[in-house]
Design a protein around this nucleic acid. Structure first.
Length: 496
RNA sequence: GGGCCCUUAGCUCAGUUUGGCAGAGCAGCGGACUUUUAAUCCGAAGGUCCUGGGUUCGAGCCCCAGAGGGCCCA
């Protein structure tokens, strides 16, 4: 944190002096509690209701509180714009009404929390106002707020000091509030379908369930290494083995990888597992869920997105991976089953070939470059190659494919789902193949989780599983292009 | 990892074209004002021009290196 400049130190000193001035007037600059009777929106509503009823003004006294966003002192009368989480309200206050406490006006700074009490009126210019006859400091702000008109523009400060962003940028606050509503709406949807919400370990001996590098830490009490989870999958499936038929978790996962416009090292996933369901059932649930959440949160299934819109009205498009690659690349990918042949295909199509990559990464590259960007409206891409899906069940008619879909929206992967692999023998072979890939240099390959295999050996019913990125869902529903704008405190390099 | 852009007062930004005294608005400070709402009016202040080197009589500006941030690509 950079040291405060001399100018800023002067400003802080001035503000501390005004806190002392409040004490001299018999007011505590930091009283323990507020005596407010109405939020600012409630106070306004009280007046409007009374006006609607034909009364000139409500006779009920109001004590309201909030942050002083503007102070207009006209000499013997002053206007203070207060703001709380419900809205804003103008306080009108006169020297005559306040008496000795009029001196408090000079002790106020922008950013201070203030309480005002009196009757609701309409000012001469028509502004619904609280005509206060009592004023009381609630909390002195020692540091000045950002400039009021433009708000805080500096991207770095907006992320590092999010409270200043929230304080001054209404749009940023609304976006982050919507994120919370998205998560609440998702919980309502899952709960109503009979899922129970569970919590599984974030500290794991071997982080599994996804292809990603984990964060490493140490558990002192047991003197053992631990990894932060990269997915929720393997523990939730243990619960299906145990007999919970519908479980979900909305939780933070951690991937020690890049930071970018759609990537933050910690992000929030929904995962759900439903016994006796398959990936088609999961797709139907995702359609219903996104329809409901969009309707609850935004009020429509047609959402503005960049220059156009995204339509979450079911049913979503469904296309198999085989057909999609045929359409956008022009080949049957099953005929390119060696590293050599798919490398040649990538070269032919002008896709950069990552060095030392196995078949799975090369295939992923092909699809990421040529197929996924095409999928702007919600589209289920179905039936993935088994090589990049070590936890999914093979399709009945082609053992090279698995019953898996990813849902793409706006060209982004939003969700990933399988008919879960519940054959412990096949699962062990898949893990061993992953270990071989790891030995060949793929440090994102799955580790063999012996306890998870033991659980599968006790028998897991046919199960449909889902993973869905809540941050990206929040981005889609708020029309934000940067994940940092839907995460309250995105990761940043430490200051200094 | 690569490319491009940004960093000047507490905040929002000019100033870089063509090297020549460091600028404005808001906020703050002093004063005026009993219906304002980006209040208005008068006055006086306020700077690590991101950091470190270099070129030059002279660098916010040109050159080199670095830091932080943003965007795009991998």
């Amino acid at each position: 944190m950079p040291r405060d400049s001399r100018r800023l130190q002067e400003i802080i000193a001035e503000r501390r002096a005004r806190a002392d001035a409040q004490r001299a007037l018999g007011h505590d600059p930091y009283p323990p509690r507020s005596g407010r009777t109405h939020s600012l929106a409630e106070a306004r509503a009280l007046f409007l209701a009374s006006e609607e009823a034909g009364d000139s003004a409500p006779s009920q006294r109001v004590a309201a509180a909030g942050r002083a966003q503007a102070i207009r002192n006209m000499g013997r009368i002053a206007f203070i714009d207060l703001e709380d989480d419900s809205g804003a309200l103008q306080v009108l206050i006169s020297q005559r009404a306040l008496g000795d406490d009029w001196a408090l006006i000079d002790s106020l700074d922008l950013g201070d929390f203030v309480e005002a009490a009196g009757l609701m009126i309409r000012s001469r210019r028509g502004e619904v106002s609280l005509q206060a006859d009592a004023l009381r400091p609630l909390a002195k702000a020692l540091r000045p707020p950002p400039e009021k008109y433009h708000g805080l523009q500096d991207q770095e400060l907006r992320y590092r000091r999010r409270y200043l962003d929230l304080m001054t940028n209404a749009e940023a606050k609304q976006t982050l509030r919507t994120r919370s509503e998205v998560i609440a709406s998702m919980r309502r949807f899952m709960d109503a379908r009979g899922f129970i919400e569970v919590e599984t370990p974030m500290l794991q001996s071997e982080a599994g369930g996804a292809a990603a590098r984990p964060f490493l830490t140490h558990l002192n009490a047991l003197d053992e290494p631990r990894q932060l989870r990269i997915a929720l999958e393997l523990y939730l499936k243990r619960l299906i083995v145990g007999g919970f038929d519908k479980v979900y978790e909305i939780g933070r996962v951690f991937r020690n990888e890049g930071i970018g416009s759609r990537w933050n090292p910690e992000f929030t996933m929904l995962e759900s597992y439903e016994a006796y369901a398959d990936y088609h059932d999961v797709a139907a649930m995702v359609e219903a869920g996104l329809e409901q959440i969009a309707t609850e949160v935004v009020g429509s299934t047609r959402l503005p997105w960049r220059d156009g819109e995204i339509d979450f009205t079911p049913p979503f498009a469904r296309v198999t991976m085989v057909d999609a690659v045929q359409e956008y690349v022009g080949v049957d990918f099953r005929e390119y089953d060696s590293v050599e042949s798919i490398t040649a295909l990538l070269r032919e199509k002008g896709v950069t070939v990552p060095p030392d990559a196995g078949w799975g990464k090369l295939f992923d590259e092909l699809v990421s470059e040529l197929v996924e960007p095409q999928l702007q409206q919600p589209t289920f891409l179905l039936d993935y190659p088994v090589a990049i899906s070590p936890l999914a069940k093979r399709t009945p008619d082609d053992p090279r494919l698995v019953e898996r879909f990813e849902l793409f929206v706006g060209g982004w992967e939003l969700a990933n789902a399988y008919t879960e692999l519940n054959d412990p023998v096949d699962q062990r072979e898949r893990f061993e193949r992953q270990l071989a890939a790891r030995d060949a240099g793929d440090d994102e390959a799955e580790l063999l989780d012996e306890d998870f295999l033991t659980a599968l050996e006790h028998g897991m019913p046919p199960t449909g599983g889902l993973g869905l990125g809540m941050d990206r869902l929040a981005m889609l529903l708020t029309n934000q292009q940067s994940i940092r704008d839907v995460i309250l405190f995105p990761q940043m390099r430490a200051e200094e």
